[in-house]
């Protein structure tokens, strides 16, 4: 009997549960209008600040490592879109350490559904959509100026590479959040990881050997925008890593998920 029940909780089951939670969550969010406005304003402001920094930089330096203004803008837009899912769907990772510390986390362990899913599904962050719009506008503008052809293939590629690129940042934040199962002030780990994302918008070619290795394989922020963008920016000379990035992204995400779940299993739940 247990077997059959578990089979019933397949992919579609999780999609439908997520949809329902999301819908309810949105409904309840509508009742906190002030919060919504302030958060959205904050989000717009951070994006604006990033953009201002970008413009100031190009005001002083016309190109960076052979990347001119529009190519950099493309990279920038790409990174903003790729960073949206982590903001919208995985924001509850920021609460993990508080819940683990206070003992409230235990409630996620009593339901017959995946603990990671249950925990993550609880928060949907609407304000991330502002970042998405901002990124999309930049992306399309740069796309047009560089003169990348608009075909079914390039669009399909863009969608695929944007989605898989977003997995890298999600995975990084999963890893960072899950450290709270072992160390006390994991807040810093999260803050620092989150700051790394600021460098996703620069070409990884600026790093030398050791650090390019680190940012490619250990803290793979180079995959959030740089490698996948090369498919569009230098279509005649695309490195293998760019083509492999969807695969690596999936693997990295899976590893981060396993690490997160390991934390749940190893934790003592003494915080009560």
């Amino acid at each position: 009997m247990e077997k059959s029940l578990r089979q019933k909780r397949g992919f579609l089951f999780y999609v439908s549960i997520y949809k329902k939670i999301l819908l309810q969550d949105l409904k309840s969010k509508m009742s906190f209008r002030a919060d919504f406005i302030i958060s959205t304003f904050g989000m717009v402001l951070t994006n604006l600040s990033g953009f201002v920094t970008f413009m100031i930089l190009f005001h002083n330096f016309p190109s960076i490592n052979g990347w001119d203004y529009h190519h950099m803008l493309f990279l920038y837009g790409f990174s903003l879109i790729a960073l949206t899912p982590v903001q919208c769907f995985f924001d509850n990772n920021w609460n993990l350490r508080f819940m683990v510390r206070s003992g409230d986390f235990i409630k996620y362990c009593f339901r017959p559904i995946n603990v990671f899913f249950y925990f993550i599904s609880e928060v949907f962050d609407v304000k991330g959509l502002g970042q998405f719009a901002f990124g999309l506008a930049t992306f399309i503008y740069a796309w047009a100026h560089i003169g990348i052809p608009v075909t079914a293939v390039t669009i399909a590629e863009a969608v695929l590479f944007l989605i898989t690129a977003s997995l890298f940042m999600i995975a990084l934040m999963n890893f960072a959040a899950a450290t709270c199962f072992w160390i006390i002030n994991s807040g810093y780990v999260m803050v620092i990881m989150f700051r790394f994302k600021d460098f996703a918008k620069y070409p990884a070619s600026i790093f030398n050997g050791v650090f390019r290795f680190i940012f490619t394989f250990l803290i793979p922020i180079a995959f959030v925008a740089y490698y996948p963008s090369l498919v569009f920016v230098t279509p005649d000379n695309v490195p293998l890593l760019s083509w492999l990035s969807p695969l690596i992204g999936a693997l990295f995400f899976w590893l981060s998920y396993k690490f997160w779940m390991l934390g749940v299993r190893k934790y003592d739940f003494t915080g009560s």
């Binding site: 906190f32 302030i38 958060s39 959205t40 904050g42 402001l45 951070t46």
Partner: peptide, 9 residues
């Protein structure tokens, strides 16, 4: 109650 918003701004 918008702590996140205030802080980020």
């Amino acid at each position: 109650e918008s702590t996140w918003g205030i802080n980020i701004v």
